[in-house]
Structures are given as C-alpha cells and as structure tokens.
Design a protein around this nucleic acid. Structure first.
Lengths: 234, 234
DNA sequence: CGTCAAATTGAGCCCTATCAAGAAACGTGG
DNA sequence: CCACGTTTCTTGATAGGGCTCAATTTGACG
C-alpha cells in the first residue's frame, strides 16, 4: 500500500473489472453499481511490495492489470508462492473478514494496478448478495484443497514431479511461453533454485520443455499432464 | 454416512451443541431455533468412516460427541491429518457451499456422534446471519494459514521440529495426556511412523515428554513452545 | 563493455524413507 | 489365569534424494 501512486479509477474500467472478477461472477451488472464508487485504484511497479507479511487488512484487493505473486513467508525468510493473481483475481480474500494480519505478503511481478475496496462497503455488499458468498466459498475451498494437496506432495512426490505439476498448471493459466525464472518456479514447487533448475534440465533433455532465460516453453503438454492427476491451483 | 445408526437428536442436546459450536458462535439462542428441527444425529463407532474421500457433500456435519479425524488422501493411499474435530467443530465446512467432492475423508477416532444439517436449511440460515459468515471465514482463514504454514514446514523444518509443533498444538487442545499413537502423530507431522517415533525417543531422552503406548505426556511445555513461533492448527 | 541477474554444473553431506526384525503391551477367548 | 494374535513401540542398517556451498557461464541491459 505504501509507495503507491493513486490513479483515477475510470482508466481501467472498474465496472468490467468487477464483472469479470471471480468474486462477483454471476451478479447482475446493476448490482455492482453500489460498489463502484468505493473503488480505489493503485499502481505498483515490477518487484514492488503490494502489502508486506503480517500487515492488518482493511480492504479487499483485486488485481486490475498485471500479475501479482502472493507468498507465504516463514520466520527464516523463506517464501513459497501461494497464489499468482491476474486481472479479476482477489489477493487477500480472507483479510477483509478477519482484518487480522496473516502470513501472506504480495508482490507485483509486472507493472500492476490493484483495485482496493474498503472493508465496510465490501462486507455489507457480501451480506446482501448470497451469490458472492458462494463464489468466495468456492475460491477458498479450492485454496484449501490445493494447499492440502501440496502438503502431501511435499512429502511423497520428488522435486521433478512437483515441478511438472507446477509447469502443467502454469501452462494452463498462461499458455506458452511461461514467463517465470528458475527462482520463481522453485518457490512454486517448494524447493531450491538449484534443484528446480536441475529438474528443468532433465525435463529439457527428455524433450518435454524448452527453456530460455526467464521463460519456459512446454513442448509435450499431454505427457506433462499424465503425471498430474490432481492438478495444482494457483 | 453409511452403516450409521439413527438416533433421536434430543439426547445430546442439539440446542447447546449449536450454541457452543464455532460456526454459530455469537448468535442469540433464539436465532438457532429454526435450525434445530433440521438436525439429524448419527452415531459412529471407533475407527468407522464418517465419509470417504471424493464423496459429494449434501449437509454440514458437526461433531456432537467424540473425536473425528479429517484427513487428506493422496492417490497413492497416503494420508495426512488435516483436522481433529471435537464437540462443536465442523468437519466439512466448505462442502455444503460447493457440494463437490474433495480430497478429504473423515474417520471417528472414538465413539462419536455427528450432527448433520442439510445443505438447504444451512445455507439459507447462513445467508440470513452475517455473523455466521464471519465465523466461517475466520475458521477457513485459519485453515488456509495453517495449511500454508505446514507446506513451508515440510520444506524447511526437520521431522523433530514438526513433531514438537504437533505435540504443542495437541497439548493445548487436549492437555495431558495426549491420546495418540505414533502412527497418528506421524500423520499429523507429515512423516513416517518410524521417523516420528525416533523423534519421540529423542524428545523423551531430552526430558521434554514421557510416552506410553497410545499416549504422550508433555513434561516441559514451555521448552516445546519455544520452538513454535507459528503454532499449528488442527 | 561493465555490471548484474539468471542459468548451469559439481562435490559433499545430512536427513529421512525404507526395509527388516524384535520386544513390549494389550485384548481376547479358552 | 494363560496362550495367542494384534497393535504399538523400538532399534538397526542402508540407500537415495535433495539441500548447501561454491564456481563458472550465459545472457540482458544500460
């Protein structure tokens, strides 16, 4: 929230932002009118922190433009990527309800604009629209299932398989090429940069992927999918 | 749900059950009247499955009596305990909203009674009571944070530390003695029975715990707590 | 062309999963 | 009360995965 530049909200079309957001999906466009005046749009440059870990939460944040990484931080400073949010996706869905600080921090991976809806109007809107509650529960359910699935993977799946799962997921979300560095892939797979890149090397030699500096091309998506019965979710 | 014996719901006092449940906390007792007629109480014996993994969900389940283990199951048959639910705790909070099957399965660890509230009345009750939404979001927020924290722990914390975290959590929830076997502790710590018991041996020799068949006594709780800045949640 | 981030590769070692076997505690049925 | 099977606990040996540290190369960008 700090270092942010305030912007007029018309520029990015907050009406269509809300309409396309997972959170507000299925509502009548007119229902959203009451929310639009509350939206505050902010810009972040690549690499900038959108909110740091352990910060109390006072508003719902939606990505309007760009790509945001939400990561879980441990006391030792290690991070694991929990969520990659594009246009329309919320980056702190639980926050507005509890207000309490969490383990999560968010960073802009590209030039980014984030829509901020203050807690009070958001909550009263939610209480008035069961559809939104339903949407939120679906998202959180996926988040919990995905996190639990990752716990098991950390235990029983080797790094290479976890990486394949990550690549498969990213391929579905971003297509080719996948715009991430080895370091970022490592944070997604829950391993070190070296191990992730070593595994990448094996996948490359196996003809499954092609990789350049900062991006990966999936060559054999079906083979990748074979190993991912339970797909990851970011 | 199968093999279950139907019971009259008055026996266990469903009014007080709801009132003491985390989900319905903070409501006026009179608010709960509309829900009570819908409650269906079922009994399970020790070790019995309450619901299997990948079963579609049609009602909210609350533990009325006993202890229930909710675990995440992988395709390889490995399990990790996700939640230990006592009286008043929900064991499938997301289910009623999505209805979709998940990775979770639930087992009775003791003689157990489970209250079942059908999806429809539960949902309409939720939509009428913002307080309940708030409660649910708080619970799910904790679940997500806890799961994410466990992912990082699996990566950077050795088995012994994870076990200490588990013991600390169980001690806070159950007091002394902690009524679990090495196998069950392993499922909580995300490791094998052997490794969990080996770690227990070290903790015992360090004077932190005392252990008998099927139960653990915490001797030095403060020392245990020192290693758990971010406590687990079950 | 200098600087910096990213990728690559290697050597070493620690942790822990796995396999195996035995001891101890408990419950059961005779 | 005892014999037996079952579960739990304990311990050992082994091997392999992956983290760590370290050095080098490559590519991007000003």
């Amino acid at each position: 929230m700090r270092h942010a530049t305030d912007l007029p909200s018309e520029g990015t079309g907050s009406q269509t932002l809300l309409r396309h957001s997972l959170v507000f999906q299925g509502l009548e466009p007119t229902d959203l009118h009451s929310l639009e005046p509350c939206i505050d749009m902010r810009a972040f440059s690549k690499g900038e922190a959108i909110f740091p870990p352990s910060e109390p939460c006072t508003s719902l944040l939606l990505v309007a433009v760009g790509l945001v990484k939400v990561s879980v931080c441990s006391s030792s400073g290690r991070q694991i990527t929990y969520l990659l949010a594009e246009r329309g996706e919320p980056i702190n869905l639980v926050g507005p309800f509890t207000g309490r600080p969490r383990l999560l921090g968010a960073t802009a991976l590209t030039e980014t604009r984030v829509a901020s809806i203050p807690q009070a109007p958001f909550l009263s809107f939610v209480y008035d629209h069961p559809k939104v509650i339903h949407n939120i529960m679906r998202i959180l359910g996926q988040a919990i299932d995905s996190a639990n699935s990752r716990i098991i993977d950390m235990f029983e799946k080797p790094v290479e398989l976890r990486l394949m799962k990550v690549l498969h997921t990213l391929h579905r979300k971003f297509g080719n090429p996948i715009p991430f560095t080895g370091f970022e892939l490592a944070e997604l797979a829950g391993t070190t940069t070296e191990s992730a890149l070593r595994a990448m090397g094996r996948l490359r030699r196996a003809g499954l992927v092609r990789s350049q500096r900062g991006e990966v091309h999936i060559l054999n998506a079906p083979e990748l999918e074979r190993h991912c019965e339970e797909p990851l979710w970011v």
